[in-house]
Amino acid sequence: MNNILERSGFCLKALVFHAEKCIGCKLCHLACSAQNEEIFNPRLARLVITSCYDREGLIVDGQVCDLCLSCVEACPVGAIVEKNGRLSFLEELCTDCGLCVDICPNQVIVKKDKGIGVCVQCKSCANWCPTEALTFEEVKR
């Protein structure tokens, strides 16, 4: 699949997380859940940004969809499709098998009571980020 995108000469843009700029405000999580799930619930966000302390000090870590397309390949019924470098989810085809959730290397697919949520590159998170810790950039493979 990646090869197809490359062969077609399509310029891939995806979210990129810059840990050194992140302040840990979680506005990205809230923006994502509001836009995609119509609720303020950071656990329903399609990205995982953490900024917290453990015994060693401050840990800032971020996982975002980098369009690796593992989920598209894994879905046995074609419920996750990529078009022009953008994912979409077809709920009517989904069998709730959970393969995509398990296979996502960044663990940013949200398992819901019915179906799943994938990053659809709505950019709400980047639009809300106060410090440009989330940007939408060309990604190399």
Partner: peptide, 8 residues
Amino acid sequence: KKACFACP
């Protein structure tokens, strides 16, 4: 720099 929840 570090923020509280929902603080820019």
